[in-house]
């Protein structure tokens, strides 16, 4: 039974290789206001700026780079085929995805009621990644648990 929409197994390792530097960069950007100066773009005085629309004249793409790296890496890890991708693994994959979506929205609901003001922007930022992270943890936990009982 061939499951579609999956990447070859080697993408799992590639995902982790991309994840480590992207995550470090993300942490630097988020908590230490780090920026690569060569990623700065300047548009000069924008002709589009009116009293209703304000476009930034200077933007820096370091955070875009970090987030892109993190999302691509997590997608690679989550969607890489297992060495033997069979029907039970496919079943576990689907089960874990169901689980991840549910937990994700429970966390989001809790955060909606418990976190207010600007801090909520942080919640939404982390929430962009939590479905994939919870899925990866749950899926690998389920597979490893079964590996251990085997002997």
């Amino acid at each position: 039974m061939e499951s579609s929409l999956l990447l070859p197994n080697r993408y799992k390792r590639l995902g982790f290789i991309i994840l480590v530097p992207s995550l470090l960069l993300g942490i630097l950007v988020r908590f230490f206001d780090f920026q690569f100066s060569f990623l700065s773009l300047s548009f000069g005085k924008s002709a589009f700026n009116t009293k209703n629309i304000h476009l930034d004249e200077n933007i820096n793409l370091t955070d875009e780079l970090a987030l892109t790296g993190i999302i691509i890496a997590l997608l690679f890890i989550a969607f890489a085929r297992e060495k033997t991708e069979d029907e039970y693994i496919a079943h576990t994959r689907l089960e874990s995805l169901k689980w991840a979506v549910l937990i994700n929205y429970i966390l989001l609901l809790l955060a909606t009621w418990l976190v207010h003001g600007f801090a909520y922007i942080d919640v939404m930022m982390y929430n962009m990644l939590t479905v994939l992270i919870i899925f990866i943890i749950r899926f690998n936990y389920a597979l490893n648990r079964n590996k251990k009982i085997t002997e």
């Binding site: 039974m1 033997t84 069979d86 029907e87 039970y88 693994i89 079964n146 590996k147 009982i149 085997t150």
Partner: peptide, 21 residues
């Protein structure tokens, strides 16, 4: 042609295999 986890899950009645399997 399946993984060892699959055999384990079937033996411990945690997973019902497909007709093909």
């Amino acid at each position: 042609g399946v993984s060892r986890q699959t055999i384990n899950a079937i033996e411990s009645n945690k997973y019902v295999p497909s007709t093909v399997l």
